[in-house]
Amino acid sequence: MDQVFTDRASGKDIRRPKLDELIRFARTGDTVMVHSMDRLARNLDDLRSVVQTLTGKGARVEFVKEGLVFTGEDSPMANLMLSVMGAFAEFERSLIKERQREGIALAKTRGVYKGRKRVLGPEKVLELTARAAAGIPKAQLAREYGLSRETVYQYLRRGEAPVGPGPTEGPDMPA
């Protein structure tokens, strides 16, 4: 029986639900077909780890684009190809990130890059910060506002509204 596992998450992250499901599902005699190495992992360590895990369970790993197959009983040449191709994928990812940073920096100097649009408007931010100051857990706030906890913390750190007494105010400090 054929089983298809399709990830919508980026290959840069090794913690992906469908990849985890694939690894749990794989067994002796299975063939795992992957479009290309950079779809499976974006750095060499993760790529090797995933391939070794799958071949260690008796599965074959086939990379269609690169035309490579790994079985766990691979020749030194196959291991070299995995390392070289994986290193190129990692290098390519690094170049893309560097170009992106450079492009953003140039756009900022021209005044055309404003960053991502904020999810919450000013009124909702005031409400969020007031509720956080009242002691409501950040995880609960994140769920209620449809945000990640990190985004809640970012709103609170930006100082868009007071979260509580700061270092220059409070009961012992003059107003």
Rank of each mutant, 00 (worst) to 15 (best):
Y145P: 09
K108Y: 04
E144Q: 05
L68H: 10
R118Q: 06
F25W: 15
P167I: 11
V34I: 07
R116E: 09
E90M: 04
V119F: 06
K117Y: 04
D7Q: 15
K18C: 07
M1E: 10
A26R: 09
R101I: 08
K124R: 06
E73Q: 12
K138A: 12
R131G: 00
V125F: 03
R8F: 12
I23L: 10
A41N: 02
H35D: 14
V152F: 00
T109F: 00
A133Y: 05
R101L: 01
K12I: 13
G72H: 11
D172G: 07
L19I: 07
N79V: 11
L19V: 06
F5Q: 04
G166I: 07
R118V: 01
R143C: 03
G11E: 10
R16A: 03
E92G: 12
K57L: 12
F63L: 05
E66H: 07
D38S: 13
M1N: 09
S75V: 06
R143V: 12
G67S: 10
P171F: 02
K12D: 15
D20P: 02
T168R: 08
R149Y: 08
V32R: 09
G170L: 05
L106S: 12
R131I: 06
P76L: 10
V112K: 11
R16Q: 00
N43T: 00
L141W: 01
A89Y: 00
E127Q: 08
Y113D: 08
P162M: 10
K114I: 07
L106Y: 06
Q3S: 13
G29T: 06
I104Y: 05
K18W: 06
H35I: 09
P76Y: 01
A133G: 13
Q154N: 12
D7E: 15
F88A: 06
Y155P: 05
